[in-house]
Amino acid sequence: MPMLEVSNLNVYYGDMHVLWDLSFSIEEHEIVALLGANGAGKTTTLKTISGVLRPRSGSIRFKGVELTKLPPHKIAELGIAHIPEGRQLFPWMTVLENLKVAAYTKRARSRLSESLETVYRLFPVLKERSSQLAGTLSGGEQQMLAIARGLVMRPELLMLDEPSLGLAPKLALEVLELVKTLRDEGYTVLLVEQNVHHALRIADRAYIIETGRIVKEGSGEELLRDEEVKRAYLGI
């Protein structure tokens, strides 16, 4: 049984139909990338999984539990961490307070000190800045904090929305390498990424979305070699 199974999902913004019968699945311990142009429906998909948006029809099952009727905080408690686009930090709270809030759920709170060790090891700069207000961090540091918050939540499924957006190229690569490391450490990852080339290199499998529909799926390697993908997304 897949860890996450999305079937026939239909989502609307008012009268506008944005996701059309979307179906895909994620197995435990894999990186699945969701790729596509701006406005294709990637962010909408993540928001629907995490409960921020409600689908009109269809189902989302996480380890057998139906998510579509649950509010976001219940979904977080089940072990899904959604690291949204644009970092969405608490800007007037310190770095450490941001991390503490991320450990709000029962599953995360008891393991906070262990989690802090882990994220400080991954991002030493966050330890240095732990008493600084999150809003005063640089863009790269903010992105690290956003990812660190996701890890502190102790999720089973980590959903990352454009984690490399706005980062210097070198840092962007490091972030994607980190995603791979996380997979190797046992996390399952759903990755939305604008950098299709890098995403396909680290992804075990990927789905391509166009205007709210899945038009292609395959392993990262297959899609890297796919002529259509090359033309449409890799500029080759």
Binding site: P72, A76, Q88, W92, E97
Partner: peptide, 21 residues
Amino acid sequence: YVGLAIRATSQNRMAASLMGI
């Protein structure tokens, strides 16, 4: 923790709900 959660809610509702609040 509850106090932090109240402040988090005031600063970014969506992010707060995604953290389980």
